[in-house]
């Protein structure tokens, strides 16, 4: 029956929206609340000039002058970290599409019921995509409450764009983990592959930013973090090309997962 697995997945996991959303929202609220004085931000930007650029680039900050703006500070203090936190949930969600239940033997029971394999993958992915969206929305709520209590004029629409900008990367990480969960078969191998993909992408992006003209700089194009670029989004708005590219790769991974899952033995 269409939608049954989607609803079942939502029912089993809706609490995660609260746990993750409120947790990340509190971080956002804290970062926004501490932005109370434009002079402090300027002092902070001055201080950052003395910090090795590579250290700032590790958290997505390429322009220290941007730290003097509330948007730049929130990008550094919230959006830079949040995607890394969300990566943990993305791996949990991606593994939950098939890998965990296959490892536990639950998938045998599910696939012996009248439901095609593709529907199991697609409905669960969309359920987790909805949960991911709700997590980001609740997290934005926390950030927004912090902005409301801030004395500074912060561009809320840019904050909305910054939150929306997290979604393609978030979905990509879920889709990639789901894909390796099907292809790798062994849960431990899938976990390792997902971790390597996320941490590797992060470091390739950071090294590429820190060492322009190097091999890492060339490789930066293969890191999804380079298309996330939260600082640029908060200062200049969403980049439709980046969003489109990340969503296209996500869709390709979903199709690849379905194709692979349809062809292979289950539970071995």
């Amino acid at each position: 029956m269409a939608g049954v697995t989607f609803v079942h997945t939502l029912r089993r996991n809706w609490r995660q929206i609260l746990y993750w959303g409120i947790g990340i929202g509190l971080l956002g609220m804290y970062v926004a609340i501490i932005v109370q004085d434009a002079d402090i931000l300027k002092q902070y930007a001055e201080l950052a000039k003395n910090v090795p650029p590579a250290l700032l680039q590790m958290f997505g900050m390429n322009d220290t002058a941007a730290l003097a703006t509330p948007e730049g500070f929130i990008s550094f203090g919230f959006f830079g970290y949040t995607l890394l936190i969300l990566a943990v949930y993305a791996v949990i969600a991606g593994m939950s599409v098939t890998a965990n239940e296959e490892d536990d033997g639950i998938l045998d029971v599910v696939l012996a019921l009248p439901i095609p394999r593709w529907r199991v993958v697609v409905e669960r992915f969309f359920a987790y995509a909805l949960i991911a969206t709700a997590i980001v929305a609740v997290a934005f709520g926390g950030l927004w409450l912090g902005i409301l209590s801030s004395a500074l004029d912060i561009n809320v629409s840019r904050m909305v764009e910054g939150s929306i900008n997290m979604m393609p990367s978030f979905l990509l990480m879920i889709a990639f983990t789901m894909f390796v969960g099907v292809v790798a078969r062994r849960k431990a191998m899938a976990l390792a592959a997902a971790a390597i993909f996320i941490v590797g992408s992060y470091f390739i992006n950071f090294l590429g930013s820190a060492a322009s003209g190097s091999l890492a700089d060339t490789l930066q194009a293969v890191s999804f973090f380079s298309y996330y670029n939260s600082e640029d989004v908060l200062l200049h708005g969403l980049n439709a090309g980046n969003v489109g590219l990340l969503l296209t790769v996500t869709a390709a991974l979903v199709v690849g997962t379905v194709w692979s899952f349809n062809r292979r033995d289950v539970g071995l």
């Binding site: 089993r12 536990d104 033997g105 639950i106 045998d108 029971v109 012996a112």
Partner: peptide, 10 residues
């Protein structure tokens, strides 16, 4: 109707 040898459920 199917019952596996080792039944795992949620």
């Amino acid at each position: 109707g199917f019952l596996p040898a080792e039944l795992s459920l949620w």
